[in-house]
Amino acid sequence: MIRAAGCVLWRRSPSGDGIELAVIHRRKHADWSLPKGKLEPGEEARQAAVREVLEETGMTCAPGPELPTARYEVSGRPKEVRYWAAEATGGTFVRNHEVDDLVWLAPEAARARLTYDKDKDLVSAFLATRSAF
Results as ranks from 00 to 15, higher is better:
residue 39 L to F: 10
residue 53 V to F: 14
residue 27 R to Q: 06
residue 59 M to F: 15
residue 124 S to D: 12
residue 9 L to Q: 02
residue 89 T to A: 09
residue 125 A to S: 11
residue 120 K to F: 00
residue 63 P to F: 14
residue 48 A to V: 05
residue 1 M to F: 02
residue 23 V to K: 01
residue 103 V to K: 14
residue 95 R to G: 07
residue 8 V to D: 05
residue 54 L to D: 01
residue 71 R to C: 01
residue 124 S to H: 01
residue 130 R to M: 07
residue 1 M to E: 08
residue 76 G to F: 09
residue 38 K to G: 07
residue 37 G to H: 10
residue 24 I to H: 01
residue 65 P to R: 13
residue 86 A to E: 12
residue 80 E to Q: 11
residue 91 G to R: 12
residue 55 E to I: 08
residue 101 D to N: 13
residue 123 V to E: 00
residue 132 A to K: 08
residue 90 G to I: 10
residue 11 R to V: 01
residue 43 E to M: 11
residue 35 P to N: 12
residue 109 A to T: 02
residue 50 V to L: 00
residue 116 Y to W: 11
residue 88 A to V: 13
residue 61 C to L: 06
residue 108 E to W: 09
residue 33 S to N: 11
residue 94 V to I: 11
residue 22 A to D: 09
residue 95 R to Y: 00
residue 115 T to A: 15
residue 41 P to M: 06
residue 90 G to Q: 14
residue 64 G to R: 14
residue 16 G to Q: 08
residue 113 R to F: 00
residue 48 A to K: 03
residue 71 R to Q: 09
residue 104 W to N: 11
residue 82 R to P: 00
residue 121 D to N: 13
residue 92 T to C: 03
residue 17 D to A: 13
residue 36 K to L: 05
residue 27 R to L: 09
residue 17 D to R: 15
residue 65 P to K: 12
residue 92 T to V: 12
residue 95 R to N: 02
residue 85 A to K: 11
residue 34 L to Y: 13
residue 79 K to D: 00
residue 78 P to R: 12
residue 5 A to D: 03
residue 111 R to C: 08
residue 57 T to R: 06
residue 24 I to C: 09
residue 59 M to K: 09
residue 43 E to A: 08
residue 92 T to Y: 06
residue 11 R to T: 10
residue 85 A to E: 03
residue 83 Y to W: 15
residue 15 S to N: 11
residue 42 G to L: 09
residue 87 E to D: 08
residue 98 E to V: 13
residue 16 G to C: 04
residue 89 T to K: 14
residue 24 I to V: 15
residue 2 I to F: 13
residue 104 W to D: 08
residue 72 Y to I: 02
residue 79 K to L: 12
residue 12 R to F: 04
residue 56 E to R: 10
residue 66 E to D: 01
residue 64 G to S: 14
residue 127 L to H: 02
residue 16 G to Y: 03
residue 38 K to M: 00
residue 31 D to C: 12
residue 130 R to W: 09
residue 42 G to Q: 03
residue 69 T to Y: 02
residue 64 G to Q: 14
residue 105 L to P: 05
residue 65 P to N: 05
residue 14 P to Q: 03
residue 110 A to H: 03
residue 49 A to M: 03
residue 79 K to R: 10
residue 63 P to I: 11
residue 94 V to N: 05
residue 70 A to T: 12
residue 73 E to M: 06
residue 25 H to T: 10
residue 19 I to G: 02
residue 82 R to F: 05
residue 41 P to W: 01
residue 70 A to F: 01
residue 8 V to L: 06
residue 33 S to F: 00
residue 100 D to H: 08
residue 4 A to F: 02
residue 3 R to M: 07
residue 65 P to E: 12
residue 110 A to T: 04
residue 117 D to M: 15
residue 112 A to N: 10
residue 96 N to A: 04
residue 129 T to S: 10
residue 125 A to R: 08
residue 111 R to G: 07
residue 60 T to K: 13
residue 108 E to A: 13
residue 25 H to D: 03
residue 71 R to P: 00
residue 80 E to N: 00
residue 107 P to W: 11
residue 50 V to Y: 00
residue 127 L to F: 02
residue 43 E to R: 10
residue 99 V to C: 05
residue 97 H to I: 04
residue 106 A to Q: 14
residue 99 V to W: 07
residue 20 E to Q: 15
residue 60 T to W: 06
residue 89 T to Q: 13
residue 15 S to P: 01
residue 15 S to Q: 13
residue 6 G to F: 07
residue 62 A to T: 12
residue 120 K to P: 00
residue 35 P to M: 07
residue 16 G to W: 05
residue 57 T to K: 10
residue 108 E to H: 04
residue 3 R to F: 04
residue 20 E to K: 08
residue 24 I to Y: 02
residue 45 A to E: 13
